[in-house]
Write a protein that binds this DNA or RNA. Structure first.
Lengths: 214, 214
DNA sequence: GTTAAGCTGTGATAGGTTTCACAATGTGAT
DNA sequence: ATCACATTGTGAAACCTATCACAGCTTAAC
């Protein structure tokens, strides 16, 4: 199972593109087609799919439906996974509305904020709880994933609480690296850092857009 | 200049942490301290700084101020760089408010949306223009960077327009890989993909939190 | 002054990811 | 049937990136 972090990310992208292709009526795709859509080389696509145990035919390429099934099986948990949103500010609400467009296997089921004015309000169909109740609610609902959109200053403290409550994965939007114990996975979405990266490379590199700049 | 994409990202993080350290009154830092805060090894920190030509002393470590100056010089453009925000939906507004807290060298100066109701309104101190005027405004203001927060279906079309207007770097929040010509840098912030990644690794890996899980 | 300790700077090394290159294979035309 | 062609599957090579390990300093203590 050659399943590096990079590969998992690409599989997720492939899946989205394959769903799109299926909706457009395609029954088969070639590695180079998928690669072009995903911004990857044909070679890389084949390797990634090989790791999943997918087989294609030299003449027809890969079957879209078969790929989708395999990727679903590989990426998704058997049941729907509930997700907690912690921090119902502007960004939190935006993410809430972003994710509530039917993501089948991942669903934000509880929100938390320290602002008493927000507590018990329902935002985008999700009930907002007091941050102080987070540990209890997370435990009760068996939530293992969290999206963290609190101010940087509070991030570590909140993360510690979430981990204590049994959270195993955090998507962290706070511009502060989190320290978490082994066994908890953190993915940082650092907007400021990313924009600075864009600024740097936009100024420099005459190339390097996406891998296959063409 | 061993300035890979990864390294640039870390430098941006170091800078933020160093500013924080400076504000706390620290005058010197050791590589392992900075590493711990940034979620990197001491070794990596030293390498990254070496690439910048920074020197530290074996007994005092690195001077915080000296590092900050060098990183600023390296990462920042000489002048303030204006940034365009395209797509003033929930996410766009959240990002607007997020960035308008004094980012010295990168400032969102123009927003664009196709919704006539939003045009000419001022959001977070930024004027919203009609999307149709984007090419002209971008050109007039000499903007080279854009944050893209439009629906996936419109992303490619809008990106093409921005590139035609002279944009050299795009921070893309649309869940769709963009095709851009060589010389234009795209950084994807794919929320759905990242959350799926978190879900996958939270379920699997008993380890792998941050590099140095400890 | 000498010794011990702890950190930096960096060549060498290990580890991981992507690309290359090509044999194997299935398809359609002749 | 046979041939030409486009694609898959994959060992090997190239390329990065991160880590190790240690020489060289600088300071503090005795």
């Amino acid at each position: 199972m050659p399943t590096s972090e990079r590969t998992i990310g690409r599989l997720s992208v492939y899946r989205r593109l394959l769903r799109q292709a299926a909706a457009e009526g395609h029954e088969n795709v070639y590695s180079h087609e998928l690669g072009k859509r995903a911004g990857a080389t044909a070679c890389q696509v084949r390797r990634d799919l090989m790791g999943l145990g997918c087989a294609g035919s030299p003449s027809r390429g890969y079957k879209v439906q078969a790929l989708l099934e395999r990727i679903d099986l590989f990426l998704d948990a058997p049941d729907v996974e509930p997700v907690a949103l912690v921090g119902v500010g502007n960004l939190g609400r935006a993410i809430l509305s972003f994710f509530q467009r039917r993501r089948p296997k991942l669903e934000i089921t509880a929100a938390f904020d320290s602002d008493p004015w927000k507590v018990d309000r329902v935002v985008q169909g999700v009930r907002c709880h007091a941050l102080a109740d987070a540990e209890r609610v997370v435990r009760e609902q068996g939530i293992t994933l969290a999206v963290l959109t609190v101010p940087a200053g509070a991030a570590q403290e909140v993360a510690d609480m979430l981990v204590a409550a049994g959270i195993k994965g955090i998507l962290n939007f706070a511009p502060a690296p989190l320290r978490v114990p082994l066994g908890v996975f953190v993915e940082d979405m650092d907007l400021a850092m990313s924009l600075e990266k864009v600024a740097y490379f936009a100024r420099r590199r005459g190339g390097g857009s996406r891998k296959g700049g063409k």
